[in-house]
Amino acid sequence: MAAFNFTPSDSSTFILMGIPGLEAAQVWISIPFSIFYIVSLLGNFTVLFVVGKEQTLHKPMYLLLCMLALTDITTSTSVVPKALCLFWFNLKSITVAGCLIQVFFLHAGSTAHSAVLVTMALDRYVAICKPLRYATILTNAQIAKLGLVGLIRAVLCILPLPLLLTRLHFCANHIIPHTYCDHIAVAKISCGDITVNNMYGLVMGFLIIGLDLTLIALSYSQITRAVLRISSKNAHQKALNTCTAHICVMLTSYTPYLFSVLTQRFGQGIAPHVLIILANLYFLLPPMINPIIYGVKTKELREKVGKYICRM
């Protein structure tokens, strides 16, 4: 692999190597990849379809579920189809433009996803701490505006990542030891100084996730205080049940993301194939699990989905 020489015509392409060390097993690895991806698409498109069709679900909470589904579809689709083409058909090449587009969409989708989780925490805070004013504070229009702010933030914060890559020089090595074009994975194969790329990616990651987790923590601290002031055990249980699905989704989203980011930069002692599999799980597990969690925990959505399934 080290002796692979590029011709001048190859200068506009990168080569994705998939999972180094597990090349012989990549066809088998593609089976859970494809199953997770298909389940995630079915689950998220089902949420979008049911909420779109049912007027009774045109409420802030369900609009947020649709936003979450859209970000899950964006992040998983930016990564998984290309990885499956690599595993099944050995289609390893990707144009520089395609690589930069992939970098933008997977990171922008992840950032927008985090913004939706923050808005969900705000929704739960208002529902529990200010229930009588919920309908006036969080209208559908307000949720749409918050979603737009989250999208704008994602674009403005992530757009510099592919732009920073364009300033780098790539010499003979165009081989990316990964299944997709991650910003730091592409930067590492350049023959130039990547200090700015490293710092910007790290600072933005911690600023965005740090800010979002802080806002979520503040929301839940207020929710906890409000719940503790409730004397009725039934009211306690009801209030906690409204937050369970959101907490589960946060755990499935932030835990693999933070673990993947930290191990990619500081996990020098971890085998490369382990790092790559862990990085892929972030784009596979949350998009598959999130609609299942909300389908199980949200009675109204579960009943509407069941109605459409019974019609089939």
Rank of each mutant, 00 (worst) to 15 (best):
I128Y: 00
D10G: 15
L156N: 05
G295V: 01
S219Q: 11
G295R: 01
L278C: 09
H183R: 02
L148I: 08
L285W: 05
V47M: 03
L41W: 14
L218V: 12
A144V: 12
I216N: 03
I309R: 12
L251G: 15
L285K: 05
N198V: 07
Y220R: 02
I289G: 01
T7E: 14
V103Q: 02
C243D: 05
I223E: 00
Q268L: 07
L213M: 15
K304V: 04
P160F: 01
C191L: 09
A141P: 04
L84V: 06
L165R: 03
Y62S: 05
E300W: 03
A121R: 08
S12T: 13
R302W: 04
S30L: 13
F206Y: 15
S231A: 12
S34M: 11
S253F: 14
A154F: 01
S114F: 10
I29V: 14
I29P: 00
Y254S: 08
K304E: 11
G295M: 05
Y134V: 05
K238E: 14
L84N: 08
R167D: 01
L163T: 04
H107W: 07
L138I: 07
V79Q: 12
D72F: 06
E23I: 00
L207H: 10
A187E: 02
T111M: 05
I143H: 02
A112L: 12
K233D: 10
L285G: 08
G21T: 01
M67P: 01
S110L: 13
F105V: 02
I189G: 09
V149P: 07
V116D: 02
V27Y: 09
A121M: 04
M288N: 01
F36D: 00
C171N: 12
L16S: 11
S190N: 07
C171T: 09
G150N: 14
I158K: 07
P32A: 10
V296I: 15
G21Q: 02
H246K: 03
L122P: 04
I194D: 04
I309K: 11
V118C: 07
S114Q: 10
I230D: 06
F36Y: 06
R133M: 01
E303S: 09
S253Y: 11
I128P: 00
W28D: 09
P81M: 11
V203F: 14
F104S: 06
D193G: 07
L207I: 12
Q26G: 00
L159E: 04
S231R: 13
L65G: 06
T56C: 08
V47L: 08
Y294I: 15
V126A: 06
P287G: 09
A69N: 03
H273A: 12
A97D: 13
A135R: 14
T111P: 03
